[in-house]
Design a protein around this nucleic acid. Structure first.
Lengths: 185, 185
DNA sequence: ACCTGAACACCGTTCAAGT
DNA sequence: ACCTGAACACCGTTCAAGT
């Protein structure tokens, strides 16, 4: 008896799911669509992922890993204040390029027990804040800038900025405001 | 022939849906559950709401109206800097008290054509910023503080602050940072 | 005018059977 | 070891029929 040959792989499936989510959003993602994209039938997906949520979680982890890379590359070897700005811009760019993926990252039902990936993605900002302000306020400062970035990106990709004027300018302005405020603290 | 007597009303239905969402989240909301809560069957809901999305939208508008009231009451007649802080605290409190409702408000698929309700809820912050900083930077400043608040509340209710230290303190700190930064601009 | 049961479409999920 | 068709549960939605 010859065992069935695998037609696909976990990585293929994750990549296909991610592409579909990027295009249509996670709510529209059907296991049938994913299966079809990798040349199998929906029930076969259950050999590799416990359920739909587990697959979404895998896509999320994939995206979070990429986000961490993007943030670290942006910060590079720049001095802390410059690195912070570059990181902020890179963060926003990531969100704008793949809004549906960005939204996926923060779905509450996708948090797993370990929290490893999200911790890794949050690390770069915290490290920079420590370099800039010292350990006493670094966590609070990281929460400040992180919250702003998250909120701004969501507002922007959800279409909540519709009163005119430049959104780019508002972003630049806000980053200046926050960094100035942090320096004084 | 006696026409059927209405067993419920739009307002009852919206209130029931809101209560159920508050408890279990919008994703878990079933039209059957809503119908049962007001003593009718699911198909009857379609006499009053075009579809499930329209019902969610009505709940969202209801919540946004309440949010605007809460924010205006918090600001009251205080001088602008005080009013801004009070409003920020009220905003966070609203989100923490009804996290699932807060999340609902910002679902992209629930935005309607007019955008009236969301505009009204954003107005108080913008007005205060104009009073505080003048019309030249008020919109950018409003976007700054609004983004921060939105991001912070989401991070908090989604459970993204888990590195210890006081979250309350981080919020206070952040508000100070941003207001200080704004004054210097 | 509003309510209902029955029916349909769609989708996640399970499982026994195939190679 | 992986894949499949068939079946089931659940839910949004439609519609003809009831009062």
């Amino acid at each position: 008896v010859s065992p069935a040959i695998a037609k696909t792989s976990d990585r293929d499936i994750i990549a296909a799911a991610r592409r579909l989510i990027k295009q249509r959003g996670a709510d529209e993602l059907t296991l049938q669509d994913v299966a079809q994209a990798v040349g199998i039938k929906a029930p076969s997906l259950y050999k590799r992922f416990k359920d739909r949520t587990a697959l979404l979680r895998a896509v999320k982890d994939d995206a979070l890993t990429e986000l961490e890379t993007v943030l670290r590359k942006a910060a590079d070897d720049h001095p802390a204040p410059v690195a912070l700005k570059k990181m902020a811009f890179a963060y926003r760019r990531f969100g704008k390029r793949q809004p549906e993926i960005y939204r996926l990252i923060y779905r509450p039902e996708l948090k797993d027990a370990t929290l490893e990936p999200e911790r890794k993605a949050a690390a770069p900002a915290l490290e920079l804040m420590t370099a800039l302000l010292g350990p006493r306020v670094s966590l609070a400062a990281a929460r400040c800038i992180t919250s702003f970035l998250h909120g701004f990106v969501l507002m922007e990709i959800t279409g909540n900025f519709r009163l005119g004027e430049s959104v780019d300018a508002a972003f630049d302005f806000s980053i200046e405001v926050i960094l100035n405020g942090l320096m004084k603290s």
